[in-house]
Amino acid sequence: MRIPVRLFRAAILGLMAAGLSGCGLFSSPDARFDPAPLTDYTPTLSVATRWSVSIGSGGDYGFEPQLVGDTVYAATPSGAVAAVDLSSGALRWRAGDEPLQAGAGSDGRTTAVVTRQGMVVAYDAQGKEIWRSQAASAVNVPPTVGNGIVVVRTTDYRIQAFDESTGKLRWNVQRPGPALALRTSIRMAMVPNLLIAGMPNGRLLAVDTASGTVRWEGSVSASRGASDLERISDVVGEPLTIGPLLCGVSYQGRTSCFDVSQGGRAVWGQDVASATGMATDGQRLYIPDMRDVVRALDLKDGQEQWQQPALLNRRLSAPAVAGRAVAVGDYQGYLHFLSRVDGSLMARLQVGGGPITSALLATPRGVVVQTGSGNLMLVGVSD
């Protein structure tokens, strides 16, 4: 059973629910868990929308823009799949007309999405459909494309790789899974010859992309608690590789880094959990925690450098590094820019379109935002 992370976050914080099967947010009788109001600050960074283009309609977890070269690839639940020029926002191609559950993943040659029926659909560099193949079950995580394969992670805890040219199933890896798992901002990472995937049991896998052999498996966190809800410990966001380090963060768990040059030896761990993921500038990890306090951890030893509580309970997106700042989106469609040095508020921009659930995308030209209404936007940052 997979329930959107918003429901779990509310329940974990002790909010009252009408029922787990509902689609709406929980209401809270406790003001401690209300979103913090926007606070006054002195702007120290200039931010502005460079371009905006509608690529479809709707937004949800499982839909995150991806940059390959100078092209942004994105998809929306309404069925649109698009390639957009990063510099100008010009639409290079648009395809698709059936409702989607996840997308888009691309390596610039092949772009893949997944329909609500679990069908993996691949497009070529001009946006022409080239194949479709059925996944083992539903898919809520964007596909990852590279090393000659298209990879999906299904809701029955499988990782399946399809041949990038033909769509033929190349390999399949399955791990036992918990009774409950999140539907939140999650993405797999591709490095030369390896796929890095976070799993719902708090573990990271490194899988050989040619054979599907699991080369390494490590624990970001262990499940704790008396109930299925309390034991949820999904690895969220995208696993980060920084030099020899591989880092992951889990829901209701912790942040852990491993040294892949030494067989995946655990380097450090901190009890900082997240519902959406993290970003790095090569010196620090930036993580919105379970209460949306943004924290900066030193990459070398995990020691906390600063924390910023001004965005408490604002349901923050996965962050992105943007020049001197780290950016996060919130439930009202605001982008917030915090100083990488001390976490102070530097800038704020309303982009609209409802809650920002897609992870922000850092690019050389600024931050790409996919809004809840299906718009794709580039926000430039300057001193």
Rank of each mutant, 00 (worst) to 15 (best):
V5H: 09
L13R: 02
L15D: 09
G24Q: 07
S27M: 12
R32Q: 11
F33Q: 05
L38K: 03
D40V: 01
T44Q: 09
L45G: 10
S46M: 04
S46C: 07
I55C: 08
G58C: 00
G69P: 04
P77T: 04
A90K: 13
A95P: 03
G96W: 08
P99V: 02
A102S: 06
G103H: 03
G103Q: 01
S106R: 03
M119D: 15
V121F: 01
K128G: 04
E129C: 03
W131L: 03
Q134R: 04
V139I: 05
N140R: 12
V141E: 07
P143Y: 02
P143N: 02
T144Y: 00
G148L: 15
D156Y: 10
Y157V: 10
A161R: 05
T166E: 08
K168Q: 05
R170D: 03
N172F: 12
V173E: 13
Q174N: 05
R183I: 15
R183T: 09
S185V: 10
M188A: 04
A197Q: 11
G198M: 11
M199T: 13
L204P: 13
L205F: 10
A210N: 06
V220P: 00
V236M: 11
P239K: 02
P239F: 01
L240I: 15
L246F: 11
V249L: 06
R254K: 15
D259R: 01
V272P: 14
M278T: 03
M278W: 04
R284Y: 01
P288W: 02
V293E: 05
R295N: 09
K300I: 14
N313W: 14
A318P: 04
G323I: 01
V328Y: 01
V328S: 01
D330M: 07
G333C: 08
Q350F: 15
V351G: 05
G352M: 15
T357W: 09
A359T: 06
R365K: 14
V367L: 10
V369E: 07
V369Q: 11
T371D: 08
S373F: 04
N375Q: 15
